[in-house]
Design a protein around this nucleic acid. Structure first.
Lengths: 342, 342
DNA sequence: TAAAATTACACAAACGTTTGCACAACAATC
DNA sequence: GATTGTTGTGCAAACGTTTGTGTAATTTTA
């Protein structure tokens, strides 16, 4: 008896009325008599009736589901983001279909196909690092399923996206250091091919020039973000003719490598050299030697925003030619968080 | 033209054959002639035909989807777990429907309802901290949808679950300290109402008695896991008549609070006092003053295991009365990871 | 050469639900 | 007392796909 779920048909048969009446009764349709409604609802409760969403979704051609493809769920940036995405989806009564690409372009391509076959109502994606062709994304757009890009934005025209602006965060960070009196500020930046590196660089330069200081390229090093690379950069700075009194690092890992190495050389952290980093990891707030400030990217907030946009796109009245040609390009400003000094 | 997805019907009409022939041709059914197959496949490719999975799932009464309900996606333990779950689901060609309860029993209940209505083929859940009634879980079992519990196991009979055994990990940890020569080992444990606290306690006692040492209850403190609580525990230990030479802490946060406090008192970490903790957070490997060893719970591995079990349950041949009454109670052994000394 | 077997396709039902339309019964209006 | 309006219900189609069964046309077998 607890085998197959109850259907509307069974209720109809038991009450000797038609399925359409049952359906309307359950949906409180105005054309159904009060007595019938009561009878139907009572029977439905007795049989533990639960509408088969798959059937409804199929019938209506809407899955009420959004697909989410992220590179790596275990990465704290993305796990915070998916948390925000799920919260919005839940609130707006949508369901989340989740998958990870592991930064593998082929797997990503497959997942996108799969999402299309699953008939998701919309797609939210942070593209993999290795993705370098974009036809499948273009093809997806033709399917008329809205797609919102998130954090990692492909170089494609006419797309919706949400990303953080690291330029402003970096600007603030460097500005903060300048106000503290620093004049020689080093930056351990990422590889030149990352957009993120360029944004940081621009923020740095902007802050310097706004203080009428000229940009010294030898104080901005491109690092491969490994521990060895970080140590190399640090050595470079420490032997520099203009030894930096403050250093901005690409991310928390680099900051940790740099700080650890500096401490091994008996350099006083945030005394001999001030450190500023980007807040990628939650634990940094708990550690002994941390940067004096960090740039927060609000992944949770970004996730929420991206999901909200996607759901707006899904539910926008169509034929709205104005909205049809407009693209959401939302930039979530990053923000400098100044840690409590210890 | 790029509006609605292509259907099998359109292909049939265009080629002037029946839908059943098209369906069978696409599925390489033996009763379809080679020429027809070719014609159908060519046309399908031209029209970018993609089977409507929702329709198929509905027809077959299988969603090929598993529901996953976790307390908090942003928590690293769970985000590592969901990563493992998704990897297995992907490999076995299932889809993951994700939701988080935020440790809210009511939301959890709603989500379970929703998953049932979505007709997931199976459910994987780590119950919320606030869940204290279990009728909805019992009710779910009656729906004949397999359910596997994960990490946080409700006190219900006859269920499948995967959890880590912290007893063995703690045993190893204490054993490790004993072998290093420690005889006075303190433990900052969690609140007594947590199963996790009991497991740790048992492991501790087991290790002590196996070395013919008697258990001194005053060396095991129950802490509320806050920084203040940790400091209180530390004060207790430092003023103890038997001052511990080694301390095991409930989790990484407690370890960090304890280590930070100890350092503020000029205690040499892992020299005056050895610390051992549990590996909840990825960053711990990067820090300067970390425990000399930690107990790893392998959340990624646990997630994989749980998903594998769930999919086995879903796909097990039914009528198998033997398998029907057997319950998976899988314990993933935790393991002591000894850090590189610095 | 007639019967049997094979090949290649079409027809129609089914899955669970919603919804436009038809229609009966009854009440209200003129 | 015929007409219109209202209320409550049933019929049937539709969504896209799979699959059991029926059946021509063709080939093989005896």
């Amino acid at each position: 008896m607890s085998d197959k779920p109850t259907t509307i048909k069974e209720i109809a048969k038991l009450l000797d009325i038609s399925v359409s009446t049952v359906s309307r009764a359950l949906n409180d349709h105005s054309s159904i008599g009060l007595i019938t409604k009561m009878r139907v609802k009572k029977m439905a409760k007795e049989l533990n009736y639960e509408p088969n969403q798959r059937a409804i979704q199929f019938l209506q051609g809407k899955s009420h589901t959004i697909g989410v493809i992220l590179p790596e769920l275990a990465e704290s940036f993305f796990s915070a983001a998916i948390s925000g995405i799920e919260d919005i989806a839940y609130k707006r009564n949508y369901t989340v279909l989740l998958a990870q690409s592991h930064d593998d372009a082929d797997r990503e391509k497959l997942l996108i196909e799969k999402m299309k076959m699953q008939r998701v109502d919309g797609l939210l994606i942070s593209v993999s690092k290795t993705t370098n062709t974009y036809e499948h994304l273009e093809a997806f757009k033709k399917s008329n399923i809205p797609i919102v890009f998130f954090d990692r934005i492909p170089p494609v025209k006419n797309i919706h996206f949400v990303a953080s602006n690291l330029e402003s965060g970096t600007y603030e960070a460097v500005n903060f250091l300048l106000k503290k009196g620093h004049r020689t500020i080093g930056m351990i930046n990422g590889p030149t091919n990352l957009v993120a590196s360029t944004e940081r660089k621009n923020g740095y330069i902007k802050a310097m020039t706004s203080h009428r200081l000229k940009f010294d390229p030898s104080l901005m090093l491109n690092c491969d973000l490994t521990e060895a690379g970080t140590i190399e950069s640090m050595d470079n700075f420490l032997n520099h003719k203009r030894k930096p009194t403050a250093i901005v690092t690409f991310n928390d890992y680099v900051a940790l490598f740099a700080i650890r190495y500096a401490r091994s050389l008996n350099i006083q952290i945030n005394k001999d050299i001030d450190f500023v980093s980007y807040a990628n990891l939650p634990l940094i707030n708990y550690m002994d030697y941390t940067p004096i400030a960090s740039v927060e990217q609000f992944p949770y907030k970004q996730g929420k925003k991206a999901a909200d946009i996607l759901l707006d796109l899904i539910n926008k009245p169509k034929g709205d030619s104005e909205a049809e040609t407009a693209y959401y390009n939302v930039v979530v400003e990053s923000e400098l968080i100044i840690g409590k000094e210890k």
